[in-house]
Design a protein around this nucleic acid. Structure first.
Lengths: 350, 350
DNA sequence: TTGTAAGCGTTATCAT
DNA sequence: ATGATAACGCTTACAA
């Protein structure tokens, strides 16, 4: 049966293959392969000729075919729980920068939603044999997901959180939180509330817990009391910050003069809601967050800055270096953070 | 030469192949292939046996191999100019939802940056033969990029903008803008400024221009003057909104009582900066945007809402349907928009 | 420097 | 219902 027929029967795409180029250039496919990939062992003239023909024919190598032949997909996976939240979208941009520069593709796996309540599936099958390396963005993982992760034998690093047995990159959450809390204490605050992000499911996600611990220990070290009724919970979103403020102010009894929020989005929610309630920031209430969200500067939010894009970029670089043969390129690293004092913190009202 | 040696020489990954499963299950690879893909013509018993063996061995099909055999990658490309801006991150989430549900992968191509000043490369090569379809997110394309786009003979739809000769999905920008402007006029405003987003490079991006035209025509129809000095430019970001406000208020002469912004981010920038400058919103200045950004509700921003995630989801669905044989599944569609009146608009000061 | 040919792991046709 | 087997398009020893 004619080859042409075969092709169309198989739904074959109309692409020109390496063989077409070889034929048109009067050389073998091996030579074309070397030529188009810029490998040595091709005479300048032949190479020029081949490149010209390839260009004219609009030849693009099939990634499936070369992936099959080499065992590499030139694609890195990025696993994220959300894409439209600050930390993640910035991290994705960072990863993309590095990948793009090194001619790799980025395959995005969005887990969509938190924890076990919302349906979400991540299994080895999803990513295995489709990517050469995996960048995991900070998130709560179920034991099951964790298990799948361990079973994937490709280079892996996690950014912004700890996963047992994996290299991770992120800020020193304890130090960052402690800095924020001390800033409030140094300003003279004694009545400080906490807006943390621990969702208390037993998922693997210790970032919130570390931030809570830092708050409690710094308060204690300063000889200040922490009140359980000023311990509010949020899920790192703006809305949860608004709700936390409302709960805090709806409750009878004394009010804090400052609040430490585990993320800028929550902090901004607090500020917005305080404004609505007629509570002045920072005159009546000081607010500090963590992140340095894009909106933080415009709002004048005091915060502890971090750069998720750079963290992801670094993680990606390690992964790619590892793939390129640099053994040990992947390792844990601590990213910098920095207190930025703006206009939402001030001494407490006297 | 032994097969094993071959494998390790070629850097072969240690994966279990279909042949291993076939051998372990005592059947042919053809049967395994049918079984794992849930195709008919496999007896229930054999299927069960095969699935069990496959599971035990941890078999996952190689996407390269099946891609090569079928001519399909089960991957859709998403081309975006940014990922951390509201419209795009939402759209990506929407596309991902649909893809995920249909077992497709999402390959993200971030053009990183606007126009020709920042280096950015998008060529046919980047995406060709790596994806089965392409979703282009609203952006300014260079003539060169446009050219490459046309040459890719795979299903394609653009979301949030028009590209000549391509199916597109998005709101009716003219109607949406007109609605916003009329809202201001209905409130009694006569002195309305415009914060548009046209960058005046000659890139293919008419969304800003349509919004400008709507503004001018609605003003004219209402018999209201538009003043060139109240025509401000921005790049859709928060910062550019802040800067526009400052320029507007720094200029001598009368001030507008309202401002129509081509995006929520810019509108929020205006609100923040007005607050800092002591200009009260909405008492002194009404502000309206377009988008219904995540922060719009918390800020009380009046806006014309749109849902980029749903637009992208629809586009993705069309693309996938087309790939599944539904000819004509891909076509242009108008997405809904809706005025949401909140607290940044009010009658002008009397 | 160039070509030959044997894989790479699937899928799909055609027999059985 | 199952099995042989020929593609799919590329890479890479190895031979020339």
């Amino acid at each position: 049966m004619a080859r042409i027929t075969e092709r169309s029967q198989r739904g074959g795409h109309s692409g020109v293959s390496i063989e077409d180029v070889a034929a048109a250039a009067g050389v073998s496919t091996a030579t074309v392969s070397r030529a188009v990939r810029g490998l040595p062992r091709v005479s300048p003239l032949t190479r020029a000729k081949i490149l010209e023909v390839a260009e004219a024919l609009g030849y693009v190598a099939s990634s499936s075919a070369s992936g099959l032949a080499t065992g590499r997909t030139r694609t890195m996976g990025v696993l994220a729980p959300f894409v439209s939240r600050w930390f993640f979208s910035k991290a994705i941009e960072g990863a993309d920068r590095e990948l793009h520069a090194r001619q790799y593709n980025l395959s995005l796996f969005n887990l969509g939603g938190h924890g076990s309540n919302r349906e979400r599936l991540f299994s080895k099958t999803m990513v295995y044999k489709q990517i050469d390396a995996l960048l995991v963005l900070c998130m709560a993982l179920t034991p099951d997901e964790l298990d799948h992760l361990q079973k994937i034998d490709i280079p892996l690093v996690v950014v912004g959180g700890h996963v047992e047995g994996c290299a991770y990159i992120g800020i020193d959450d304890y130090a960052a939180s402690a800095t924020a809390v001390r800033h409030l204490i140094d300003l003279g605050h004694r009545d400080i509330a906490l807006l943390h992000g621990d969702d208390e499911t037993d998922l693997n996600f210790d970032v919130p817990r570390v931030r809570i611990r830092a708050f409690k220990e710094v308060m204690e070290a300063a000889g200040l009391p922490t009140r359980p009724e000023w311990d509010e919970w949020g899920d790192f979103t703006l809305r949860s910050g608004q709700e936390a403020f409302r709960r805090l102010w709806a409750r009878p009894g004394p009010k804090p003069t400052a609040i430490f929020c585990a993320s800028d989005e929550m902090a901004m929610g607090v500020v917005f809601e305080a404004n609505r309630a007629g509570v002045r920031v920072p005159e009546d209430l000081s607010v500090v967050g963590i992140d340095d969200h894009d909106f933080a500067d415009a709002m004048g939010l005091t915060t502890v800055a971090q750069r998720p894009d750079e963290q992801a970029e670094l993680g990606t670089r390690m992964l790619l270096d590892e793939l390129n043969g640099t053994a040990g390129a992947v390792h844990s690293a601590v990213a910098p953070h920095q207190l930025i004092v703006r206009r939402t913190t001030a001494p407490p009202p006297s």
